[in-house]
């Protein structure tokens, strides 16, 4: 497949604007996960579109915000922001009532911060310039957590590997982020159910046909990005279910998902 031709075909614009057919959309998502150039091209267009849409912003009447708040019924309750969790320490996040909603709100803040980069372009609009300043303050206050996650996900050196479910566990899914320079490996769980207390998931790198342990983990409660062991090489990644604290090799009958690492 010719990546350059694909990128120039209009599929990017079509996908971002929500005009692609279901089939084209699925294909695009798969290819964008595989090829960073395609994901980058997508981001470039998204930013151009964002700039244009912001340029024709129309402020709504003041009472609209209040009405929305009444509908969603939010009150000022504390929420804990997620942090990157090192698997050796296995920190269990404290639970608040309604944590799921608040954790979502917290991760929302992290991704709003990525909106900061869109604002760099909006010079002529004074209102947006003011918001830029507010954004920077917000960003600095959550800097440690946000910048780390964003750095990982937006870094061009970082390869995304889509872990796809096996016959045994067709819906199991996760993403691996592998930094080709530092060789760091991170894991984001997408769909992996909790296990019985005597079991744990284990991540493996397959190198020259041999499995190498990259760490045991439990699926986190909120959207943390897990740091796994580094690996210099990997032909593929695999996740299995093992007994808690497994020191042996992988139980291949319990293979949950696999993903091929793109060749460097």
């Amino acid at each position: 497949m010719n990546i350059k031709e694909y990128i120039a075909s209009g599929i990017i614009e079509s996908y971002v604007l929500g005009l692609a057919t279901d089939q084209d959309r699925a294909e695009f998502e798969q290819l964008a996960a595989q090829y960073p150039e395609i994901a980058d091209a997508r981001t470039r267009f998204e930013l151009e579109l964002e700039k244009q849409v912001f340029a024709s912003a129309v402020n709504p009447p003041d009472d609209v915000k209040e009405k929305i708040l009444n509908t969603i019924g939010e009150t000022g309750t504390s929420v804990n922001l997620p942090s990157t969790v090192s698997i050796e320490h296995d920190i269990t996040p404290s639970r608040n009532q309604g944590w799921l909603r608040f954790a979502a709100a917290a991760s929302l803040i992290l991704f709003i911060v990525s909106g900061y980069f869109a604002y760099k372009f909006y010079n002529q609009n004074k209102e947006l310039t003011t918001k830029n300043i507010e954004l920077e303050k917000e960003r600095d206050s959550v800097a440690n957590i946000a910048s780390e996650q964003q750095k990982i996900m937006n870094d061009p050196n970082v390869m995304v590997v889509n872990m796809v479910g096996t016959e045994k566990a067709p819906k199991s899914s996760a993403n691996i982020y592998w930094d080709s320079t530092s060789r760091n490996v991170w894991l984001v769980v997408k769909n992996m159910p909790k296990l019985a207390s005597d079991k744990q998931y284990q991540l493996w790198a397959l190198i020259d046909g041999k499995p190498v342990d990259l760490g045991l983990f439990d699926p986190p409660d909120n959207k943390v990005i897990l740091k796994m062991n580094n690996t210099q090489k990997a032909d593929a990644f695999a996740i299995t279910i093992e007994t808690r604290g497994n020191t042996g090799g992988p139980t291949l009958e319990e293979l949950q998902s696999m993903g091929k690492a793109r060749l460097q």
């Binding site: 929420v79 804990n80 917290a106 803040i109 709003i112």
Partner: peptide, 14 residues
């Protein structure tokens, strides 16, 4: 860990 109010998150978004 930082504490954040969820209605601040909404306000920010809005």
């Amino acid at each position: 860990m930082l504490q954040q109010r969820s209605d601040t998150a909404f306000s920010y978004l809005y």
